[in-house]
Every structure is written in C-alpha cells, then in structure tokens.
Amino acid sequence: MAHTPVNHPARPVYRAIGGLTGLYLVAFGVLGIIASAGNEILAQDDTKVLAQGTNLGFSLLSILLGAAVLAGTVIGRNIDVMINQWLAYAIMAISLAGLAFIQTEANIFNFSIITVIVLMVVGLVLLMVGMYGKVGTDEEKEAWQKARLVL
C-alpha cells in the first residue's frame, strides 16, 4: 500500500488509541455480560449498557473483538495494523447490518441506534489507527515518501 504512511511520527499515539479502543470494547462486553446475566444469548429486550442496546451474544462478541485489538497492540510489528484494519471493516459491516435490521426480528444483537453509531465510530477509529501505525525500515519510509510525491 503505497498510500499508507510508514513510520509516522505520531505512531505511538495511534497505537495507544488502538489499545484504548480495544479496552473500551472489552469493558463494554464485560458490563454487557453483567447487565444481561440470566437472559438468553440473543435476547431482544431492553438491556442497555452505556446507553447502547446489547445482549449476551453481542457482549461476548465485543470482548472477542476487543481482545483481538489488544493482542495486536501488544504484539505490534505491523500485525496490529492488519488486525485493526480488518476488524475496522468487520465492525463497520456489523454496524451497517445492525442498522438495516434494527426494527426487525433479525436484530439478533439487540442493537439500538446509539449502538450503531458507536460501532461505526469505533470502526473508523480502528481504521485510522491501522492506517497510521505502520512500521518499516528507512528504505520503506523513503519509498513511501517517493510514492507519495508522485501521487
């Protein structure tokens, strides 16, 4: 990807933002499990955590996604870039699917409109973090600089 910056000066800040996003997803998932304890996995009720609709299934999914982001942040070495970008696209797709099914029986994750908005923001933040967190050699940085000037 010639358009993705290599060794961006704010790379540590973006990596920290990615870690905080992963922590948010894990915290939301844990609070969701606590709030939906005793309910069915894909219950469609009025369970809300941090003003977002959720159920046990979505809380577990949030913990898994957050753990993947945190694992990528800890590992680094451009694995975090790949994880953040792919999960960003997946989270945005889940968000759009939730928006499409929000008023139907197919709303298996008990989404509310606030949940959709927050997921879209989380996806965009992860995408930004993934695009600016790439690490490379000085030669790769120079090649990126040359390619950037050609565009």
Rank of each mutant, 00 (worst) to 15 (best):
Val6Ser: 02
Asn7Thr: 00
His8Cys: 03
His8Pro: 02
Pro9Val: 07
Arg11Tyr: 00
Pro12Gly: 08
Tyr14Cys: 04
Tyr14Asp: 01
Arg15His: 14
Arg15Glu: 13
Gly18Trp: 06
Leu20Ala: 12
Leu20Asn: 01
Val26Met: 13
Leu31Arg: 13
Ile34Tyr: 14
Glu40Lys: 13
Glu40Gly: 14
Ala43Lys: 02
Ala43Ser: 11
Asp45Lys: 04
Asp45Ser: 06
Asp46Ile: 09
Thr47Met: 03
Val49Ser: 07
Leu50Ala: 14
Ala51Thr: 15
Gly53Lys: 04
Thr54Gly: 04
Leu56Arg: 12
Ser59Tyr: 00
Ser59Glu: 00
Gly66Asp: 02
Ala68Asn: 09
Leu70Cys: 06
Gly72Phe: 03
Val74Pro: 00
Asn78Met: 00
Asn78Tyr: 00
Asn78Arg: 09
Ile79Phe: 14
Met82Ala: 13
Asn84Pro: 00
Ala90Asn: 05
Ile91Ser: 07
Ser95Glu: 02
Ser95Trp: 03
Ala97Phe: 11
Phe101Val: 14
Phe101Ser: 04
Glu105Gln: 11
Phe111Asn: 15
Ser112Glu: 05
Ile113Phe: 08
Ile114Pro: 01
Ile117Phe: 11
Val121Met: 10
Val122Arg: 01
Gly123Val: 06
Gly123Tyr: 04
Tyr132Asp: 03
Gly136Thr: 05
Glu139Met: 02
Glu140Pro: 08
Ala143Arg: 10
Trp144Gln: 15
Arg148Asn: 13
Leu149Asn: 11
Val150Arg: 13
Leu151His: 13
